[in-house]
Amino acid sequence: MGYHMSLSISLTINGLKREIALDDPRVTLLDLLRERLHLTGTKKGCDRGQCGACTVLVDGRRINSCLALAASLDGAEITTIEGLADGEDLHPVQAAFIAHDGFQCGYCTPGQIMSAVGLISEGNAGDDPERIRELMSGNICRCGAYQGITEAVLEAQKDLAERNRRDAA
């Protein structure tokens, strides 16, 4: 039951199952993605769960990847910003961020977008901008693109709902 030096874990990342040998139990999911798997779309802003730049989906839920030990997530499904678009077709949240200028420097953006995707699937905000603002408050944007972010989430949510209706019909 104890794991010492070499630790083997299995993660499904953006639909691809990967067996990963960890030489160090200290590696966080964020550092695993960035420094070992070179999936650098996920960003490190604070490394302490205080900014949201590292947000990814783990088993469909948005979390801060900087505060998750990779070893502990053995078997999980991870979705990062790299796994969101369908080829060259942007995910509706990505498209809405561009349309509403929901970013400036772009550094917090992957985290904002993954957080927005998580928020929409959680389904607790409705179309209330105040709820969206509250539920996006775990993602700090120092450039101050919040208004565009809120508008983008509202639009993408509507867009996704329509797609789902169409698909169901």
Binding site: R34, T40, T80, Q94, A95, F97, I98, D101, G106, P110
Partner: peptide, 21 residues
């Protein structure tokens, strides 16, 4: 116009310094 670097930034393909390996 929307940002020319928009697609790179929303897909995680915009490369910031620490993304280099």
């Amino acid at each position: 116009l929307t940002r020319r670097d928009g697609v790179l930034k929303v897909t995680g393909r915009a490369t910031y310094a620490a993304d280099n390996h």
